[in-house]
Design a protein around this nucleic acid. Structure first.
Lengths: 334, 334
DNA sequence: ACCCTTTGGTGAACCGGTTCATTGACTCCC
DNA sequence: GGGAGTCAATGAACCGGTTCACCAAAGGGT
C-alpha cells in the first residue's frame, strides 16, 4: 500500500498523489477528488518515516528533563505537548537523571533521529562537554528554566525574585536564623534562589549564617535528611525556606518526626506551591508561578525557531513568581 | 556524511560499513577497525530515519495516557521509559484527554510513524470505534490499567480489592452512610472500585445509598463540587471515600470551606496515597499500589511482545493494592 | 497563423541506510 | 590435484515517499 498503488488505482502519476497529500495547489479539483477517492478506497496512509527520510526532518520535538516525577513539571509538558501537537509535531520524551553524560547521549540520539527541535533542562550550564554537544546539535535547542548559554532560547521563572520575596517576608517577621534548602547550584533555579536569598539579607543588612544553607537537595529523602540535620544543630534555625521544587514533603516529614510544630516551632516557606502546601495545617506559605504558561511559551518559541523565522539568537522569556503568604510563616518571638 | 563516505574513506564497500554498524559477525577485525576509524575520523553518525525506513520499524514506543498532570502517573512513565531506553527504544508521549476520537487519531498517527508498540489508557474499553481502531493497529498495544479487551496485554492494579478493603474498613468502624467519588465508570479503575465498594456492602448485608455515589469525578474541581454537594445533603454521609486518583485536594478544600473537620465531622479515605494524604492533619487513610512496578512491567511485557516471542494473547498482570490506615478514618459515633 | 506564457501532470532520481545474491579466496579432504 | 564447503566482502536493488526537470495542452497577444 503505497503512493504507487494509489496512483495506479486513480490512474495518475505518483507525483500527483504526492501533490494531493501535500495540498499542492497545482492539482485540478477533479484529479484531487479521484486521488482522494482512491486513497479512501484502498485505506491508504502515508508513511511518515519515508517522508522524514526525504525531507530530512521528522516532525518530532524532544523534551528532556531531569526527572519526570516532579509532579509540577507534568503541567509544563502537558501544555507544551498540546501546542506542539496542534502544529503537527509529536513529542519525544526522555529523562536526563540530571547527568551530563546522559544529556550528551540524548542530544546525539535526538540528532540521529533527525529531531526537529529540543527543549531540555541541563544539570550544569557551564559543563564544557555539554556546551560542545549543544553547539554541535544542528537543531534548535530551547532551555527549560536554565540560562547562561547565550546562543540558546530559554524560558525561565523568576526564582530570584521569588526567593527574595520569601526571604524578605521572613526577615520582616523578625527571623534572623533562616535555613535554606536548595538543589544543584550549578543550575539556574537554585543559583537564582540563592541570589534572591542573599539579596534579601543584604538589603536588610544581615549576614546569613552559612551553616544554615543546604544545597544539592534533589529528592524528598535529601530534604528529609537536610531538615533533620538542621534541626539537630545546637543553634537551630527559626525559619526554614524549602526552596527546591517539590521537596516540601520530606521536610515536613522530618519536622513531624522530630516533633517540631510548623508555624510555632519553626516558620516554613515552600519554594513551589502544591496541594500539600495549601491544605497542610497550618497552610504553608509558598512561591507560585505558572508552569503551564512556561510550557506553552517554550513550545511556541521553539516552533518559531524551527520555522526558521529570522529572530535574534538567545531569546529569553521569564514568567513572574509570587509569594502566597499563609499560616506557616509567623513572627519570630524570641 | 553517509555510509558511502565512510566506505570510501575506509576503502570498503557500503555493505561492509553497514555490517560494522550492526555488529554483524562476518567482518574481519582488521576491516572493522578500519571502518571504525573512518567513522570516528569523519564524525559519522547513522541516520535512524533511514534505518527505520528500510527496517519497517522505528524503535519508537508510544505512550498515551489520559492526562499527564496526574502526578503519580509520572512514576509509571519514568520507570517505563528507563526500561525501554535500556532496550534501545525511545518513548513517544501523548495525552488522550480521555476522548475516544483523540485515542483513535493517535493510534493512526502512531501507525503512520511506524511505531513499534503502544501503551495506553482508554476512555471507554467498550467504545466500538476505538475497538476497531485497536484491531487495525498493526502493532502491539498494551493497556494501562484497563481490561475487557481480550486480545491485548494489560497491566492493572487491583482497584477492586483496594476499594473493598477501604469500604470494609469504614463499615467496620460503624459507618453506614458512606459516600463515594469515582471517575469514569466506562473505564476499568472506577468500575472496579465501584465493584469493590458494592462487594463490601453486600458482605456486610448493607445496601449503599445511591444518592451518595458521585461518578465522573475527573478533576480536582469536580471533586470539590461533588464533595460540596454531598455535604449539602439533608442526610449527610458520615464517611467519604475519594476513590478517584489524585482528587483528594479538591475534596479537602471543599470540606475546609464548609467547615467540616476531617476525622471528627467526617471520615475520609483516599483512593491513592500521596504526600498530601500522609502529611495532612489528621493523616488520611489511603489505598496504595506500586505504579513504578506497573511501569516496569508494562515496558517489559511490551518488549516481549515486540520481539515477537511466542506468547499467548491478552496476558494480564495485576499489582496488589493495600490499605494504609491513618487518622482520618474513625469510628462512627452516632 | 504564429509565438509565448501559463498551468497541470509526469516519472526518474533521490533521501541514507540494509539486504542478499554473487564472487573470490581459502581450507579441507579424498 | 580437484571438488566441496566455508567465509568475507561486494554492490545493486530496495524501503516509500518528494522533488523537479520536462512535456503537453490551453490561453493570450499581435
Amino acid at each position: 500500500m503505497k503512493v504507487k498503488d494509489v496512483a495506479r488505482e486513480a490512474g495518475v502519476a505518483v507525483g500527483t498523489v504526492s501533490r494531493v497529500l501535500n495540498d499542492h495547489p497545482a492539482v485540478t479539483r477533479e484529479l484531487r477528488e479521484r486521488v482522494e477517492k482512491a486513497m479512501a478506497h484502498l485505506g491508504y496512509e502515508v508513511d511518515v518515516t519515508a517522508q522524514s527520510m526525504r525531507a530530512g526532518r521528522s516532525r518530532l520535538v524532544a523534551c528532556a528533563i531531569r526527572d519526570f516525577d516532579i509532579p509540577r513539571f507534568a503541567l509544563f509538558i502537558k501544555e507544551a505537548e498540546a501546542v506542539l501537537r496542534e502544529a503537527g509535531y509529536t513529542l519525544l520524551l526522555a529523562s536526563t537523571t540530571n547527568r551530563p553524560d546522559v544529556e550528551i547521549a540524548l542530544l546525539r540520539a535526538f540528532r540521529r533521529r533527525r529531531v526537529d527541535g529540543v527543549m531540555m533542562t541541563l544539570s550544569d550550564e557551564q559543563h564544557l562537554d555539554v556546551r560542545e554537544a549543544l553547539s554541535e546539535a544542528l537543531m534548535p535547542v530551547l532551555l527549560i528554566d536554565r540560562d547562561r548559554i547565550e546562543a540558546l532560547d530559554r524560558v525561565t521563572a523568576d526564582h530570584r525574585e521569588g526567593a527574595r520575596l520569601a526571604t524578605s517576608h521572613l526577615l520582616d517577621l523578625g527571623h534572623r536564623r533562616i535555613a535554606m534548602l536548595v538543589g544543584d547550584l550549578n543550575a539556574f533555579p537554585s543559583r537564582s534562589r540563592l541570589e534572591g536569598f542573599r539579596a534579601a539579607h543584604a538589603a536588610a543588612g544581615i549576614a546569613p549564617d552559612p551553616r544554615l544553607l543546604r544545597d544539592d537537595v534533589l529528592s524528598s529523602e535529601d530534604a528529609y535528611r537536610a531538615t533533620a540535620s538542621l534541626m539537630s544543630l545546637a543553634e537551630r534555625p527559626t525559619a526554614l525556606f524549602v526552596a527546591a521544587m517539590d521537596m516540601l514533603g520530606g521536610c515536613l516529614r522530618a519536622l513531624r518526626t522530630m516533633g517540631v510544630a510548623v508555624g510555632d516551632g519553626i516558620s516554613v516557606v515552600a519554594g513551589s506551591d502544591s496541594d500539600l502546601a495549601e491544605l497542610h495545617t497550618p497552610p504553608i506559605t509558598a512561591i507560585a508561578w505558572d508552569l503551564a504558561a512556561m510550557g506553552r511559551h517554550a513550545a511556541t518559541m521553539l516552533l518559531e525557531r524551527m520555522r526558521g523565522d529570522e529572530i535574534e539568537r538567545g531569546r529569553g522569556l521569564t514568567v513572574p513568581t509570587q509569594l502566597i503568604i499563609r499560616g506557616s510563616s509567623r513572627p519570630f518571638a524570641s
